[in-house]
């Protein structure tokens, strides 16, 4: 417990910053909607003039119906991207920061098993993801409700659909956090975290965009972003089970590998 408490305290500032940023991002983007809604037909006309690949790359495929939830799916893409970067950040740095800040000798010479330290750190990461998702889930809904009350005639947002779409943030974050933990368990010394997490997240996002045009169900397995294709979720009102299972299997594998590698790792001397 003492490790988790300290880890939470150390991560608090970044957790607050990222939570506020994600909510702020969603809020600012959604603020555009009322003015768009007033001229929706003109706007949709303009959108149609863009090449389909471009629209897909920027998550604008669901504009066609001009609904609030369609616009939200466009906004959510950016939230997912930013949220994934945050999750990867905390995943990569959780174990590696003890080595980077040279505090590993202090912590690992305490009378606790390495397994317990790893578990405490993983639990901390999970807690942080849980908190950011709960806050975003609630604030996002409030933002949508507020937007809806100012515009008329676009139909009510289905809360089930909203929860389903927004929950993809949590699963993507779990994926990237566990991937980050896994990467940090075998890299020798990680000096800066952000280039790694941004690199990996954008790499997978680019793969997702490429596959949007190729539209291959097999290639979709490569990128976690395509596990949660928001336009498909809007159409079907459900996740695709095979991708959901893939996501959780990979998360479990990454976590298991993290334990396996980090338990046997030599902590580099200063």
């Amino acid at each position: 417990m003492n490790i988790i408490r300290l880890e939470m305290r150390r991560g608090m500032k970044s957790l607050i910053t990222w939570t506020v940023s994600l909510v702020g991002l969603a809020f600012l983007f959604m603020m555009i909607y009322p003015s768009l809604a007033a001229q929706m037909t003109d706007f949709l006309q303009i959108m149609k003039s863009f090449p389909p690949a471009f629209r897909e790359a920027f998550g604008m495929t669901n504009f066609e119906n001009g609904s609030v939830i369609g616009f939200y799916s466009f906004v959510l893409i950016y939230v997912l991207l930013a949220g994934s970067i945050y999750a990867m950040n905390i995943g990569v740095s959780s174990l590696s920061m003890e080595v980077r800040d040279k505090t590993a000798d202090f912590l690992y010479s305490k009378p606790v098993s390495r397994c317990r330290i790893i578990s405490s750190k993983i639990i901390t990461v999970l807690l942080q993801i849980l908190i950011i998702n709960i806050v975003f889930m609630i604030s996002g809904w409030l933002i949508l409700a507020a937007i809806q009350s100012t515009t008329s005639g676009s139909g009510r947002v289905d809360i089930r659909l909203y929860l389903l779409m927004t929950a993809s943030l949590a699963i993507l974050q779990l994926f990237f956090a566990s991937l980050g933990l896994f990467i940090s368990s075998f890299l020798k010394r990680i000096r800066t975290v952000l280039p790694i997490s941004m690199g990996v997240v954008f790499f997978f996002y680019t793969l997702y965009i490429l596959n949007q045009t190729l539209d291959s169900a097999e290639l979709a397995y490569i990128s976690p972003f395509s596990y949660f294709d928001l336009s498909k979720i809007i159409q079907t009102g459900a996740y695709e089970i095979r991708y959901l299972i893939t996501a959780f299997v990979l998360i479990a594998l990454f976590i298991a590998a993290t334990y396996r590698f980090y338990m046997k790792k030599d902590l580099p001397s200063i």
Binding site: L6, D101, K102, T103, D105, F106, S109, I270
Partner: peptide
Amino acid sequence: YLPSEVFYY
């Protein structure tokens, strides 16, 4: 244990 190089949070 007192390590040769001391680093704390």
